[in-house]
């Protein structure tokens, strides 16, 4: 979907995404780091159950809400940090996607 223009000396951080350890680009937002790694989905809509993707990347639309270290946060305004635990609950069928 997106590619990195300038791949020289990119730093990475190790995080856990949906239960899997993963190395993502450091120094940017969680959402940008996920996009850079080929992900487009942020969560399932709690009202329609369909997948959502980020829309504005500037903190307005709230489509990038996901569970980050146990709290639902806007991934586009949250800077990625090492050892973060990120859960998008993309495979859950229930209405609510916590825990």
């Amino acid at each position: 979907m997106f590619k990195q223009v300038d791949t020289q000396d990119l730093e990475t951080v190790e995080v856990v995404v949906d239960g899997e350890p993963r190395k993502l680009q450091a120094g940017i937002s969680v959402m940008a780091a996920l996009l850079a790694d080929g992900e487009l989905n942020s969560r399932l809509s709690p009202t329609s159950g369909k997948p959502c993707g980020p829309h504005c990347l500037m903190g307005v639309c709230f489509e990038c809400l996901m569970e980050i270290d146990g709290i639902q946060r806007q991934a586009c305004t949250t800077e990625i940090e090492k050892e973060m635990v990120i859960n998008r609950h993309l495979s859950e069928t229930g209405e609510n996607s916590h825990e």
Binding site: S29, A36, L57
Partner: peptide, 14 residues
Amino acid sequence: GAVNNLAKEAGLVP
């Protein structure tokens, strides 16, 4: 604007 932001913030292009 989102794609513009991604370029500025993270150096990403479609």
